[in-house]
Amino acid sequence: MSKIILITGASRGFGKLWAKALLERGDKVAATARNVENLNDLIAEYGDSILPIQLDVNNREDCFAAVNKTKEHFGRIDVLINNAGFGLFGAIEETTEQQARAQMETNFFGLLWVTQAVVPIMREQKSGHIIQVSSFLGLVTLPVLGLYNASKYAVNGLSETLATEVKSFGINVSLIEPNGFSTDWSGASAFQTEANEVYAPIRKAFAEGATPDTWGKPESTADAVLQLIDAENPPLHFLLGKIAYPGVKQVYSERLAEFETWKEVSAAAHGH
């Protein structure tokens, strides 16, 4: 049986790739984009199977309208893929208030608004799968990506909590946590702070740390995402790429060792 899937940020990158993969196998897709003209090729190929919706996820009212339009058009929503977002590159000291707020507005609040809109529909259906496109940088951090890291940590905290709140309604929640992939995330979709030269060595080290093998191939993710969507018991955390797991494992091992070193001081602070 085909699924009804709502994907935000579907005009490029992961969103468009996954929309195409879902349409190819016979699913129905509501695809949102700031510029729906970028969906014209999918519309031409798949016709009524795709519902294009113009959406800026920063507008809460429009997020609710897009979700309701999807429900009215297709009759239900089986899967939400919250994919809209962008990368902000720059040291924390360099980041302007406007840049910081814009990063959180799209990556966190936009995802929150769409999530809030879809939960009542899935709750009424007694079924659904909310897939939040986070990052392995919601589990670990890299320099010169401070606000991006923070937005994805916020997405992870929100979504882990959501999973405990909606499980009894038959709703599953998954976090897709990719390592770096060769999408527009670090190119056309990315924003840069105004560089302060004191951070030049850190930028240089960051750039030199990424080899060609570091970046995954976006088209290789489609099968993994289809398996996640079809899973009877989907995972809450779902890493994408071969860099993510060893990176997360190392950081978490070091974190546990640090907790262990300080555990007596920590316990004494409890007071009794």
Score class of each variant (00 low, 15 high):
V118G: 11
V118R: 05
P120Q: 11
P120N: 11
P120K: 07
I121S: 03
R123I: 01
R123D: 05
R123T: 10
S127L: 01
S127W: 03
G128A: 00
G128V: 00
G128Q: 00
H129R: 01
H129Q: 02
V133Y: 01
V133N: 07
S134M: 00
S135G: 04
F136N: 15
G138P: 02
L139P: 02
V140K: 06
V140Y: 02
V140W: 07
T141F: 08
V144I: 14
V144G: 00
L145H: 09
G146R: 05
G146F: 02
L147H: 08
L147Y: 13
S151F: 04
S151P: 11
K152H: 03
Y153E: 10
A154L: 05
L158F: 15
L158I: 07
S159K: 03
S159E: 07
E160R: 12
E160N: 07
T161K: 04
A163V: 01
A163E: 06
T164P: 07
T164A: 14
K167N: 05
K167Q: 12
S168Y: 10
F169C: 03
F169I: 00
G170T: 08
V173Q: 02
I176P: 07
E177W: 04
E177L: 07
P178N: 04
N179M: 06
S182Q: 14
S182N: 15
S182P: 00
T183E: 05
T183G: 04
D184K: 14
W185I: 15
W185V: 13
G187H: 13
A190Y: 01
A190C: 03
F191V: 00
F191S: 13
F191N: 08
Q192A: 11
T193I: 04
T193L: 12
E194D: 10
A195G: 07
N196Q: 08
N196W: 09
N196M: 11
Y199F: 12
A200F: 10
A200L: 08
P201M: 06
P201S: 06
P201L: 06
R203I: 11
A205L: 10
A207Q: 13
E208M: 12
G209D: 08
G209E: 06
T211C: 02
D213Q: 15
T214S: 15
T214G: 12
T214P: 14
W215N: 14
G216N: 05
G216Y: 04
K217Y: 09
P218M: 04
S220C: 02
S220A: 15
T221P: 11
A222N: 13
D223L: 12
A224G: 09
A224C: 05
V225A: 08
L226C: 05
Q227M: 06
Q227K: 14
I229K: 09
I229E: 02
D230I: 04
A231S: 12
A231K: 09
E232M: 03
P235S: 10
L236C: 10
F238D: 05
F238G: 00
L239M: 10
L239Y: 11
L240N: 03
L240V: 08
K242D: 15
